[in-house]
Amino acid sequence: TFYNFIMGFQNDNTPFGILAEHVSEDKAFPRLEERHQVIRAYVMSNYTDHQLIETTNRAISLYMANL
């Protein structure tokens, strides 16, 4: 899942690491979701930090390219 992918960046001092920290603390994050459209919609609806949203979009693109 995307959640498992992004958790691989925990403790990294990178934008993906920052995203992983936010996702791990977000109890409502769709952890079992595999459809990138649902993940993107969730982030757009629940996150207000523009940098975090952009990082999510980049992470989703990388995740999709590696499926």
Rank of each mutant, 00 (worst) to 15 (best):
T1D: 05
T1Y: 06
F2K: 01
F2A: 00
F2T: 01
Y3R: 01
Y3W: 07
Y3I: 02
N4G: 11
N4I: 09
N4E: 14
N4W: 09
N4F: 09
N4L: 11
N4Y: 10
F5H: 00
I6G: 00
I6C: 02
I6E: 01
M7R: 05
M7N: 02
M7P: 00
M7D: 00
M7G: 01
G8K: 13
G8A: 12
G8S: 14
G8W: 07
F9Q: 01
F9C: 04
F9T: 00
Q10T: 09
Q10S: 10
Q10Y: 14
N11H: 13
N11R: 08
N11S: 08
N11F: 12
D12W: 08
D12P: 06
D12R: 13
N13M: 08
N13F: 06
N13T: 08
N13V: 07
N13H: 09
T14G: 15
P15H: 09
F16D: 00
G17S: 08
G17W: 05
G17N: 04
I18W: 13
L19Y: 02
L19V: 05
L19H: 01
L19G: 02
L19I: 04
A20P: 02
A20V: 05
A20E: 02
A20M: 04
E21L: 15
E21R: 15
E21D: 13
E21V: 14
H22A: 11
H22F: 13
H22C: 08
V23T: 02
V23F: 12
V23G: 03
V23M: 10
S24H: 13
S24A: 13
S24Q: 12
S24W: 09
E25T: 14
E25L: 15
E25W: 10
D26T: 06
D26N: 03
D26M: 04
D26W: 03
K27D: 10
K27E: 11
K27C: 09
A28P: 03
A28Q: 12
A28K: 11
A28E: 12
A28D: 14
A28T: 14
F29E: 03
P30G: 01
P30Q: 02
P30M: 04
R31Y: 06
L32Q: 12
L32G: 12
L32I: 06
E33G: 03
E33T: 06
E33V: 05
E33D: 05
E34Y: 15
E34W: 15
R35M: 06
R35T: 06
R35A: 08
R35F: 05
R35I: 04
H36V: 15
H36C: 15
Q37A: 11
Q37N: 12
Q37Y: 13
Q37E: 15
V38I: 11
V38C: 12
V38E: 09
V38L: 09
V38Q: 08
V38W: 07
I39Q: 00
R40F: 12
R40V: 12
R40I: 15
R40N: 06
A41D: 14
A41G: 06
A41Q: 12
A41F: 08
Y42E: 02
Y42C: 02
V43T: 04
V43Q: 00
V43M: 11
M44L: 12
M44V: 10
M44N: 09
M44D: 07
S45I: 09
Y47M: 04
Y47Q: 02
Y47C: 06
Y47W: 14
T48W: 08
T48M: 09
T48N: 11
T48H: 11
T48D: 11
T48A: 10
D49A: 06
D49R: 04
D49Y: 13
H50I: 14
H50P: 15
Q51A: 13
Q51S: 13
Q51E: 13
L52M: 07
L52G: 01
L52V: 05
L52Q: 02
I53Q: 08
I53E: 04
I53V: 09
I53D: 02
I53W: 10
I53G: 03
I53L: 10
I53A: 05
E54Q: 08
E54A: 10
E54F: 07
T55P: 02
T55D: 04
T55R: 05
T56N: 04
T56M: 15
T56H: 03
N57L: 15
N57C: 11
R58D: 08
R58Y: 09
R58N: 09
A59Q: 02
I60H: 01
I60N: 00
S61P: 05
S61T: 12
S61R: 13
L62Q: 07
L62P: 00
L62E: 07
Y63Q: 04
Y63A: 02
M64E: 09
M64N: 07
M64Y: 08
M64V: 13
A65Y: 10
A65W: 11
A65F: 10
A65N: 10
A65K: 12
N66L: 15
N66H: 15
N66V: 13
N66D: 10
N66T: 14
